[in-house]
Simulated assay, not measured.
Amino acid sequence: MLFLIILLIIVCIALALFVLIQNPKGGGLATGGSGSNMFGVQRTGDVLEKGTWVLLALIVVLTLSITTIAKTGGSSASAVDSKIQEHLDKTPTPSPLGSAPAKTAPATTPADTTKK
């Protein structure tokens, strides 16, 4: 599972780099009014866009596999979970009505017995 987590981090960093390398394709004020494009730029954009989608799909697959492995659990994870469950079973559950503990009478101060 540790290998999958490290692989997920590497894929996330690669996806961030792919997104940062791409040219923005937004319209509006970002377009310069020029319709001509160099021939190599479109192909590079296509490769980067497809790479982005592949990395995104890989992130989804890795995330789901890590979640599945974590839910089925290994021996160490289930041992920790059982200890936590034992501790939770031993603690008393509070009343669902939220009743406060019984109030005790306020302590009275003893009378002043010193002579003046």
Rank of each mutant, 00 (worst) to 15 (best):
L2W: 05
I5P: 00
I6N: 07
I9S: 11
I9T: 07
I10D: 06
V11W: 04
C12R: 14
I13S: 06
L15S: 10
A16G: 14
A16D: 06
F18M: 14
F18Q: 11
L20Y: 10
I21Q: 12
I21D: 01
Q22V: 02
N23V: 06
N23M: 12
K25C: 07
G27M: 02
G28R: 00
L29H: 12
T31L: 08
T31D: 15
G35M: 05
S36N: 11
N37Y: 00
M38K: 13
F39Y: 11
G40E: 09
V41S: 15
Q42P: 00
Q42L: 12
R43F: 12
L48M: 05
E49D: 08
G51N: 02
G51K: 00
G51W: 02
T52L: 04
W53S: 04
L55M: 06
L55Y: 00
L56F: 04
L58K: 06
L58V: 10
V60D: 00
V61S: 05
L62R: 02
T63G: 15
T63H: 09
L64K: 08
S65H: 09
S65E: 07
I66D: 04
T67C: 12
T68W: 10
I69P: 00
G73E: 02
S75I: 10
A77P: 00
S78N: 11
A79I: 04
A79Q: 08
V80R: 15
V80T: 11
K83P: 08
I84W: 08
E86Q: 15
E86P: 05
L88Q: 03
L88V: 07
L88I: 13
T93N: 11
P94L: 01
P94W: 02
S95V: 07
L97F: 02
A100N: 10
A100Y: 00
P101Y: 01
P101H: 01
A102D: 10
K103V: 15
A105K: 13
A105T: 09
T109W: 12
P110L: 08
P110N: 06
P110T: 06
A111T: 12
T113A: 12
T114L: 05
K116I: 07
